[in-house]
Design a protein around this nucleic acid. Sequence first.
DNA 1: GACCATATAGAAAGCGCTTGCTGCGTTGCT
DNA 2: AGCAACGCAGCAAGCGCTTTCTATATGGTC
Lengths: 348, 348
Amino acid sequence: MTVTLADVAARAQVSPATVSRVLNGNYPVAASTRERVLRAVDELDYVLNGPASALAAATSDLVGILVNDIADPFFGIMASAIQAEIGGPGGRAGGERLAVVCNTGGSPERELTYLTLLQRQRAAAVILTGGAMENPPHAAAVAAKLRKLADAGTRVVLCGRPPAPDTDAVALTFDNRGGGKQLTEHLIGLGHRRLGYIAGPEERTTTRHRLEGHRAALADAGIEEDPRWTVHGRYDRRAGYEATLELLRRDPTLTAVVAANDSVALGACAALRESGLRIPADVSVAGFDDLPFSIDVVPSLTTVRLPLAEAGARAGRIAMGREEPPPGGIATVRGELMVRGSSGVPRT
Amino acid sequence: MTVTLADVAARAQVSPATVSRVLNGNYPVAASTRERVLRAVDELDYVLNGPASALAAATSDLVGILVNDIADPFFGIMASAIQAEIGGPGGRAGGERLAVVCNTGGSPERELTYLTLLQRQRAAAVILTGGAMENPPHAAAVAAKLRKLADAGTRVVLCGRPPAPDTDAVALTFDNRGGGKQLTEHLIGLGHRRLGYIAGPEERTTTRHRLEGHRAALADAGIEEDPRWTVHGRYDRRAGYEATLELLRRDPTLTAVVAANDSVALGACAALRESGLRIPADVSVAGFDDLPFSIDVVPSLTTVRLPLAEAGARAGRIAMGREEPPPGGIATVRGELMVRGSSGVPRT
DNA sequence: GACCATATAGAAAGCGCTTGCTGCGTTGCT
DNA sequence: AGCAACGCAGCAAGCGCTTTCTATATGGTC
């Protein structure tokens, strides 16, 4: 029923070996023979059997991409950039890699399960995006898995994620701490002294780093932080909305709200508006990431731009061995402060 | 170096066949034996070889998802929902499927190439999302490919895409025409008579259907359309921005701008604002899709909500054979008009 | 004209797993 | 007791491809 290499070989009057070589193009084959084979392939409408090749050659052309949630543009943008680089059709000639996108939903178990599944597929590379969980046993388990993958020849790259200790995975880390610091410094520079902070879920490196940056800025400015000014929540709009209401309840005199990311900031804006507060006249708002919509909300969002697409593309190239890993296997990717309409001088 | 089934078998003192059966759980194995095998698997840290299984069993656990661009939340949301249903870890027990996300970028060739690549992988299912190209030769080529995939046992589902003729692919189609009509009727109901329309790229079913709906509404209301009122462009913010400027140049008396989708609408809003026009006091704006950010822009966007996540989930379940396909293999998914702040009565 | 380097094709041995079939020891039934 | 039926495990034949090694031309060289 299904056409195999042997059928093509028979039709082209050559051996299966030759057909394989024509198709893989890594061994000299006479032009005339090649043409004959190609014609047979065409006539029979032959399609290589991927699993069989993978088995025989002990390699596959799958690349795993772990994300929290692909519906979130933060991850979507990175995934898209990675995909463009790993050379699907239209990419550089040669390997046509397929991207396997895995939504971990931020769950440690799923992260591990997906890594195992990718190991099972003998993935050519695995790219982990986004922050890591700060859970020592889990981190160790992940590191062990990554080591095993690397041993099996899978290239491992971390994109927007802190380096994994005891691993030689290449890491492209976002400077969340530095970005957070800059952002809060900007607000302080405008005159703000009472700043609410809506942090992401605890036990996440991203959350902690951004918060640390924020606090460092406060400390540098000699501002004593009130514990009531920080609320934790998920990285979504809803959480931002609720956290802002809570913040307002705790201290109605806040003049600025710094959000863990842009989506959270959007929720914060909605809550402020519904509370009858003007942005930035009454309260300034700041986000993080600079997702595409951030410039379109009104007022446009002051935030820290993270070069998601660039980082993803670079991670993709490194994963494909088309770009040298950074020295030491670790590179820090900085964000850029984008001052826009949502931040202004505090009401007096 | 790498552990194989045989190693596990040796360690558990059983035959490879038994180990395989324990791992696949589709053949009776005595509890004590199973336990012994499982222990050996654990001790050796064994991971099944996916390609080898796929080859031997002639099936794989990969599911292809074709999207235009995964960075676009329109596709990201569907992909995420599909992924959740095809039973990665955490999904229903049994198959742990991996989602292969393919960015076609709206290019016919890449669409075809990716389908071939998925065919090569012997994907368990393929889900095509988003509108189709209206290019007869290409449509025929895709249909032929889909037939071939179906013949090979790959389940094919179209999500948010018109049915593919001469194919028995299940289609979950968005009612773009109906949605477009409703939207424009709403605007007409408010009193608008001169409406600009920013359409998507030509030769796309989505573009055509939405535009047809718009025109049908105009016709029903006895409004004669001025050809200058329609501009085509890409489905992104930038295109919306430019198209709006063009529209304004052609006819500064327009009182409403209907955009092909929400991103385009955002661009339109930006252009209007920069032109000194207030929304909706001077010009009303409407989008399509109701992506998450649409409610957060100011004014919030009047649009047509498409149940992207629900449709994706359903497509995923159908692809996995966990839900009956709709009768006739075709179902129409309707949108819901969301009237918000960006539309109002026209200036008099 | 003999000999060797070079170019190209074929033979065959797997890659690691699944599964149809066979075999044997038990249990159930009459 | 005797026979059928059943439950469970093993054998072995592939699944469709890659790749090493070998064989055969071919041409160049002295």
